[in-house]
Structure formats: structure tokens, C-alpha cells
Design a protein around this nucleic acid. Structure first.
Lengths: 100, 100
DNA sequence: AGGAAATATTTCTGTACAGGCATATGGGTG
DNA sequence: CACCCATATGCCTGTACAGAAATATTTCCT
């Protein structure tokens, strides 16, 4: 599964957002989300395979940590578009400056 | 369909990439892509509904233009992650790993 | 060793959706 | 008006995948 697809699923984005607060066990994620335990587990598997999270076994807990690097692929893809629309905004600014 | 899902499909990303070169008719897009005409047309519909492209009717042609603004939602979502990995110097590591 | 806790996996069901082909629609031209 | 071109839409099939419930697995604790 591509990083793009991994991130297309709202629950998976929510998991990543939660992990931005810091490492968290699978159970803690389940508590914080409105989704069944198997559901969360399955999404965690997808995120693992996309390289977006890393697991550390701690006792019987699995502690998950954010691994944001693969997101760079999306950032890189977006880059030319950002330039596009900022140049458009520049044009708009320019236009407004000339026609107040 | 969310912007995230719209962009998750490789053919749709390809369409957007092509449109970065400038406006283009549907037929021109079909010529440039390895996908049937109906296939391209369906993806164009999805992109229209996501607000990522705009159509202009010109004779019997439909001329499509890039409308990059909705991508900002993705950029905004990514922003905290960019800060995360730049603060952790993951970005530098990544860069050094690829350019030793 | 036995049981409980934490998590993963399997199984099932429904749904979404991509792709191809055939067909409809709408505008342009003779 | 009849015909052609460009594009959209319908229909069909296969596949991927999300969610729920039940079950398996691993590890800790006593």
C-alpha cells in the first residue's frame, strides 16, 4: 500500500495524529478512538507496512511510535503545486495592489 | 470523495501532473496516458468533484485546468509532521543517507 | 502450570471503486 | 437534417478493503 493510500483513510490519519503526542500502546490508541480493537490493530498493520509507525514490544504491550519519514514522498509530490498556487496568490496580490 | 482519496489514485495524480504543464483537453490527456478514454473521463469526474480541476467547454472539447487549492488541506495536515521530523533531524539523516 | 491481559489474526459481509466495452449525449460541419 | 467528433455515462466484473465478532497468540503474574 502506498503512503498516499495509507494516509487516505481517516482512522489511519487519526492514529498518526495521536502518535504525534508521543509513543502510545495499541490499547491506549483503542481507548482514544471510536473503533474496535481489531479495527485499530488492522490499521496499525497497514501503517507498519507503509513504514509510518514502528513497534516496540514492552511486556505484553506493543508500544507504537510515529515514523514520519515516508510522508516526505507526499510533501515532495506536493511541492510543485505549492509553488503553483503561491505564484497565483502573488498574481492576485499584484492585481489587488493595482486595482484596489 | 476527500482530497486525500482523490490523490491516492496514481492515474489521478498523473492527470494533475500533466495539467501542471497547462490546460489540456480531455482527449489530449487520453493520448498522454496509458488508460482508456472512459477511464480518464471517470477520473476527471472524481477530480472535478474534489475541486482539483475545472472544466471549460470550448467547442466540442472540454478543456481541463488545474485547481490546486484543495491540496492545501493535505499540506496543512502534513505541516506538524514536517516540523516533527525536521526537529528530530530525520530530514538531515534522510538527506545524508541518500547523498553520502 | 494456569489464568488473565494485550494484541494480532481469521472469517465473514457489505461496499466502494477501478477498468474495459458499449452506448448515450451534445456540439460542429457539410 | 444527417453525420462525425469529443466526451460522458451505464453496465459488468473483479478486487480491495473497512468493520464487526470470534478466535488465536503471546506474555505476564501468582
Amino acid at each position: 500500500m502506498s503512503v498516499f493510500s495509507a494516509v487516505a483513510e481517516p482512522h489511519r490519519r487519526q492514529i498518526l495524529d495521536l502518535l504525534r503526542e508521543g509513543e502510545m500502546s495499541a490499547g491506549e490508541l483503542v481507548e482514544r478512538m471510536d473503533l474496535s480493537q481489531p479495527g485499530v490493530s488492522k490499521h496499525l498493520k497497514a501503517l507498519r507496512e507503509a513504514g509510518l509507525v514502528a513497534v516496540r514490544v514492552h511486556g505484553r504491550r506493543r508500544v507504537y511510535a510515529l515514523e514520519p519519514e515516508p510522508l516526505e514522498e507526499i510533501v515532495d509530490w506536493l511541492e510543485p503545486y505549492r509553488m503553483l498556487w503561491s505564484s497565483r496568490l502573488d498574481r492576485l496580490e499584484h492585481h489587488l495592489r493595482e486595482n484596489p
